[in-house]
């Protein structure tokens, strides 16, 4: 099963189990979403619960917050993460702070799904990886899956979270990988990373669309690496990272987002504060560039096997 199918199946199960669940967004109803994540749900659950919206991200996000305040369980979709910025005030100043500013008298559990990242020839405005903007905001939980079965389990868990979740879907993986996905409802815990490959020489911390790239790279090159898929970016799982780093003494962080102040900066600082005495070599980052995302040269922008292996060699040499 592909990731887009597993997401569709998760949404279907959530909608059928929970009469308060409600989906809203642009072209998600009759059309089933531009990537088909909500295909068939409009027909099954009706226009009141699978709501096509006018073209305004602040309308979608604001309505979802207001629905949640009133006890519904909205799952808004923003068509591309690149389009979310007009609604950032509502996400950062309302969604993330309602529990705090009301001392938990009000809260707004909801799951905001949005495709992110490059690799589909989307250019500047259909390729961005803006996870740091969200992960920098206390009150938000930021989740990103890296496989079809993870996507389903993490999405179901997200809808059961008492707090708002920004669910970033690596659209490059929507149809590029297939795997068996368990039937029915199952949860994958939030705030927990997954060890996706085991080894003793080096720890590679990654997430989202870079997970399969990193796993392919270490397998093809026989790198004896722990590959950690963060799954939840905020609050991320420091214990799994530290346990691995204390074993290997070498760390590479791989993500698509620009290097400066990306997740890699935080993880690197966290490791430096707590486990620097275990390190044989500097913590290295293999990331997207500190430039807007390009159209024609997207493969050049994205971390790949060559760049990851260059970092692995440097880490192993200890310089």
């Amino acid at each position: 099963m592909t990731m887009i199918k597993s997401i569709n199946q998760a949404l279907d199960l959530i909608m059928s189990d929970d009469p308060d669940a409600i989906i809203l967004g642009e072209d998600i109803g009759i059309n089933g979403g531009v990537f088909r994540a909500t295909d068939g749900l409009y027909k099954k659950y009706g226009a009141d619960r699978v709501i096509d919206t006018p073209l305004a991200e602040i309308g979608i996000v604001g309505m979802a917050i207001g629905m949640s305040v009133a006890g519904l369980h909205p799952i808004p979709e923003i068509q591309f993460q690149d389009f979310i910025y007009t609604a950032m005030d509502l996400i950062i100043n309302q969604m993330a702070k309602i529990r705090f500013r009301s001392a938990s008298q009000f809260s707004c559990p909801l799951v905001l799904r949005t495709p992110y990242g490059g690799g589909i020839k989307g250019g500047l405005y259909h390729s961005q990886s803006g996870e740091s903007y969200f992960a920098h905001t206390a009150g938000l939980t930021v989740v990103t899956p890296s496989s079809p079965s993870d996507a389903k389990g993490l999405l179901i868990s997200s809808t059961r979270s008492p707090d708002p979740v920004i669910f970033l879907e690596p659209k490059r993986l929507y149809r590029s990988i297939k795997e068996d996905v368990p039937d029915g409802v199952y949860e994958i815990p939030l705030r927990k990373a997954a060890l996706k490959h085991q080894g003793d020489d080096i720890t590679i911390v990654t997430y989202g669309s870079m997970v399969p790239v990193v796993i392919d790279t270490v397998e093809r090159n026989n790198v004896n690496a722990d590959v950690i898929d963060l799954r939840t970016l905020m609050p991320y799982d420091k214990d799994t990272i530290l346990e691995s780093v204390r074993k290997t003494g070498r760390v590479i962080i791989v993500h698509e987002a620009p290097r400066t102040l990306g997740m890699g900066a935080e993880i690197s600082a966290m490791i430096s504060e707590r486990a620097i005495e275990y390190l044989y070599s500097p913590i290295l980052r293999v990331t997207g560039l500190d430039a807007p995302f390009p159209y024609r040269n997207e493969e050049f922008y994205l971390p790949n096997e060559k760049r990851i292996m260059r970092a692995v060699k440097r880490a192993m040499e200890g310089v």
């Binding site: 309505m63 917050i65 207001g66 305040v69 009133a70 006890g71 909205p74 509502l90 309302q94 500013r101």
Partner: peptide
């Protein structure tokens, strides 16, 4: 409901609650 400082930020929320 709890009041924010942002002018107008309560309006789309009101629509969502009214929808519910």
């Amino acid at each position: 409901f709890t009041v924010p400082s942002m002018v107008g930020a309560n309006l789309t929320l009101a629509v969502g609650t009214a929808y519910a």
